[in-house]
């Protein structure tokens, strides 16, 4: 239906502007453009995605060069100068133990980005593996794996994370494991549906007819063709994972003091909201900006990698 609608429009454009259509054929269409290059071109044109990329790069650099930007350490207490408002000595003020908030926010970028990275990688690896097994082998294997996904998705995600942390005990590492687990079914379902649609493709049958082994078909044909949605989900998942880690930290179920984790910083400054509201602004704003950055890139990637969006 949609394809039919599109064709006359393109034809009309060519009639309306024959010169332009001709020149396009001469230059662009003959030169072979790989789909990846094409997507990259689409992505570059997306200003929102660019803003997202700048935000994320900013926080990555902030995390890396944190020791160079400040003369304080994130756990150094200075009880004389507690709850100081922002000044030239303490750009963002100090917290209830006299620690420099800017230093803690900068080091916090390390913690949050690392949590996001490891949680997404864990979910990605196990989710993709389970998704491929379920989708490729079908039948009872698919039945069992899909039901497990259904059950995990039947819990609101943060609640499941809380349950897992309640079992394992509160620590940053356990929060990371919990976040990885709750994201496994999201990747798993995505990959499974992609594999199922690919499995019946002619080139897969051809590969099988040639006597190719399952492992080789999966690795060389199925996986490369399902990579686009996985990339998008990983980017968006990065933001969600950081948000979830901060939420667990805020509830006291994630990073423990004195780790400079943004959610945990908010929790420990909460009681000083009247006395020193500046202690709450920067950690929260940082969480929001990082998540926003990943969401912008994720949305941009989705548009760039989705062939339906191209025109």
């Amino acid at each position: 239906m949609k394809l039919d609608e599109k064709k006359p429009v393109e034809a009309e454009q060519q009639i309306a502007n024959p010169a332009k259509a001709d020149s396009q054929i001469d230059t662009e269409e003959i030169e072979a453009i790989s789909p990846w290059k094409d997507s990259l071109k689409q992505l570059r044109k997306n200003r929102f995605a660019l803003v997202g990329l700048i935000i994320i790069l900013f926080f990555i650099i902030l995390g890396i060069v944190a020791p160079l930007l400040t003369s304080y350490t994130y756990e150094e207490q200075d009880l004389v100068n507690r709850l100081q408002p922002p000044s030239s000595e303490h750009w963002m003020g100090t917290d209830d133990l006299g620690r420099d908030i800017f230093t803690r926010v900068a080091y916090g970028a390390r913690v949050s980005l690392q949590v996001g990275f490891f949680a997404v990688t864990g979910a990605l690896v196990f989710g993709t593996l389970l998704g491929i097994i379920a989708g490729y082998f079908g039948r009872w294997v698919d039945m069992i794996i899909s039901r497990i996904f259904d059950i995990l998705l039947a819990f609101p995600s943060i609640l499941l994370a809380i349950a897992i942390v309640a079992i394992l005990g509160a620590s940053l590492q356990n929060a990371l494991i919990a976040i990885a687990i709750i994201n496994i079914p999201i990747f798993g379902r995505l990959v499974r549906s992609k594999v199922i649609s690919l499995r019946e493709e002619e080139y897969i049958m051809a590969a099988r007819a040639q006597g190719m082994k399952n492992g080789r078909i999966i690795l060389h044909h199925i996986l490369p063709n399902s990579i686009a949605p996985i990339i998008v989900q990983s980017t968006l998942g990065f933001g969600t994972a950081i948000l979830e880690a901060a939420a667990l930290g805020f509830l006291g179920l994630g990073a423990q003091p004195p780790t400079p984790e943004w959610g945990q910083m908010l929790a420990s400054s909460r009681e000083f909201i009247q006395l020193a509201p500046w202690t709450l602004i920067m950690p929260g704003l940082s969480i929001m900006l990082v998540v926003l950055g990943f969401n912008l890139i994720g949305d941009g990637l989705r548009d760039a990698l989705d062939p339906k969006m191209k025109n």
Partner: peptide, 22 residues
Amino acid sequence: ALIGVSMPVFWLALMEQWIFAQ
């Protein structure tokens, strides 16, 4: 809407308390 999607609920809640309650 983009900012809203990325908002940490607990931070928004704290900011609300600070501005609108306090």
